[in-house]
Design a protein around this nucleic acid. Sequence first.
RNA 1: GGCGGCAUAGCCAAGUGGUAAGGCAUCGGUCUGCAAAACCGACACUCUCCGGUUCAAAUCCGGAUGCCGCCUCCA
Length: 480
Amino acid sequence: MTIRIFNSLTRKKEIFEPVQPGKVGMYVCGPTVYDSCHIGHARSVVVFDVIARYLKDQGYEVTYVRNFTDVDDKIIQRANQLGVSSKAIAEKYIQEFNEDMGALHVQRPNHEPKATEHIADIIQVITKLIHKGLAYTIDGDVFFRITAFEQYGKLSGRRLEDMEAGARIDVDKRKENPFDFALWKSAKPGEPAWESPFGPGRPGWHIECSAMSMRFLGETFDIHGGGKDLIFPHHENEIAQSEAAHAKPFAKYWVHNGFVNINQEKMSKSLGNFKIIRDVLKDFHPEAVRLFLLSHHYRNPIDFSDKTMAEASSGLDKLYNALERLDQAAAAVPDDKRPNPGVWEKFQEAMDDDFNTAKGIGILFETVHQINRFLEAHKEADAGDVSFSLNAMRTDLLRIGGILGIFAESPQDYFAKQKTLAAQTADVDSQRIEQLIKDRAEARKTKNWSLADRIRAELTAMHIVLEDRPEGTLWRIEKP
RNA sequence: GGCGGCAUAGCCAAGUGGUAAGGCAUCGGUCUGCAAAACCGACACUCUCCGGUUCAAAUCCGGAUGCCGCCUCCA
């Protein structure tokens, strides 16, 4: 099996060949922990979660590292506003992050380093850069000298000359070049600081990833990931620091995920259209969120809205329905572990092509369709060969679910949870509804259909939908 | 000003040379006292427009139009 990955560095799909055969080192930029995580963070984390899961499934020994930036201007600012320590802010939001991602069934990386726990590593890299003449010190600040790294701009595809024309930020006049960036920021009153050979201070943003990736993955590793917005300047600067310091290639494959828009608008603080993960999870099942995020190719932008989420949610219902039918049909049959040639292989093919989860999900639905057709055609059948293929289908379905991070629940639990979710979301007088349903049940018992229908109409006007089942009448809020 | 991306049915979306996956919605059917849910079936002679390359293009090249992102903290 050959995996092909779109490499942002070359802007081409390339055949994936890890530095060490059979092993994958993967570093993904995690959040700066100064606020709650939004759906955009979720996308990045879920996308790389799936990539890690898939590589592991394919037999690679994966070392997955995702950092927390826990010292930074925004954290300090937030801490000062609230009158607490930066550390307290960072810890609060790291915990929130872990809760949110846990709720989304995200598997933990092998290492989740924090910048503040690797100050020594960071100082070491900076020292090396200074010794090599690639960085310079001014009043306790240390800057990287970008002109000393000839290939600067190779990831983002921009040249220094072009950028200067568009620069519209206040330039620190002390710097040799306006695009030189801080490796170390000298201590200021009220800010966290560490001792260093260059004086007390704290690390700049970019250097932590160079230091920590080297600590856990070595000087050259396989996959470096993050959101598209990190390409410049963050990843560009990481490359400059790391390759200049070690004189070796940094990451082989650069993988960047696209943005999440909200109702076709860019999500931003100023527009006030941030969607916090915990709010989304109040309305939707975590696996519906995953299915939504993975229904689009990871490099394309996606639009988050009630409509698109509701669609993903319906889709997940359909998948769980099929699983439930399959469980019932296959219940009496001994499990056969033989793989079903076809379904899993097709899914694998999709994933091998730059982790095309959207295509993979299409295959999932196609399979569900086949299963339903089969079940319809063999309603009475329980013959051995028939059951065998069902079992194999089920195995494949669950294996695919294991990559996408869905089907973690039994269909029964899933539908129970969906119902609770719907009831919580809606503001209804459930007592009154229950009473009306009781009245209708009476009417139906005496075959008073006209009264029964009147009650149904009344409930419909209240946007309540009824489902008469053998075990009783269920009700739910009409889907928007 | 520089760099990059995208334009596929009512909507979402996959598809980088071989004759348009999948989902949602809609319509028809099975089921039901009627419904709902579930399932089955139907649903793009065509991929923004114009030109070119090719036996063959949604897919490659050139141009036009429209939308978006990055160049500043940002997943």
